[in-house]
Simulated assay, not measured.
Amino acid sequence: MANSAGMGGGQVYPPPHGQAAVNQQHPPNNWADNDANTLLVVATLITTLTYQLGSNVPGGYWQDTQLSADGKTELHRTGDPVMRDLHRPRYWVFMAASWMGFAGSMLMTLSLLVRMPVISRQVRWSFAVAYASLVLTFIVSQSGTHLSLDILVWAVVVAFLWLMTSVRPEHRARIVGCLCCAGDN
């Protein structure tokens, strides 16, 4: 146990077992409590990840050029994404999500670098866009599911992200409690 005089008038943190903290209030978990430097690291990681996703498409790239049976038409060309040729709608959703994630994380990075407040809508929404885009790229990279179901799952995640970044902390705790503990009364 170390004395942390800088953290509350010489009180010991955490309080010893059995001692009640008198008049000690913990601030609610609020978006503004996030450290800008931590969010900058998160934004940089998301930027790196979305860059990797965009340059390494699931399924890889064709290793050869294949011509049609008559030899006049190219079916695919060396270096073209396999996903684009075999799952075209899924590929375009994947690429759009990848670009949105990259743009959102870059916007968040630049916003934090110019010292925009963490609580600003620009920082919160660029985080939500970047994070939701990562979720969408992951979901659509799994080709064994139906694309419309993937997008529905993603929409639920976006709604949850909106709740977590936009609602007041006291309401947020109540919402999470209802979602996680609905059957525990």
Rank of each mutant, 00 (worst) to 15 (best):
V93N: 05
D35V: 07
L75I: 06
N3Q: 09
A128G: 04
V41L: 12
Y91D: 02
H171C: 04
C180M: 05
Q11H: 04
C180Y: 12
Y131S: 00
S133N: 02
R124I: 01
T44Q: 11
R172W: 05
F160E: 04
E170Q: 15
T109R: 10
T65K: 00
Y91F: 07
V93Q: 01
L107Y: 01
W125Q: 04
W154E: 15
V82F: 05
H171L: 06
T50I: 00
R84E: 14
F94Y: 13
G54V: 01
M1H: 13
N3A: 07
V41G: 10
A20T: 13
W154M: 10
W31Q: 08
R88T: 15
G8M: 02
S55T: 06
H171K: 14
K72F: 06
N30E: 14
A69H: 14
Q25H: 04
T109I: 12
T47D: 08
I119C: 04
G183W: 14
W31I: 13
D85M: 15
G6E: 09
V129K: 12
N56M: 00
Q19P: 01
Y51T: 10
I151W: 15
M100S: 10
A20Q: 15
Q66W: 00
A132K: 06
A182R: 13
D70R: 05
C181D: 13
N34R: 06
A21N: 03
I139Y: 09
F127Q: 02
L149C: 13
W162A: 15
S98W: 01
I46D: 01
V156Y: 10
L112P: 05
G18E: 03
P16F: 04
L75F: 07
R115W: 06
T109E: 12
V153S: 11
P89V: 09
Q142N: 09
R124S: 04
M106F: 01
G6M: 12
S143D: 11
S105T: 04
W162V: 11
L39I: 07
T137Q: 08
P15A: 12
Q11N: 14
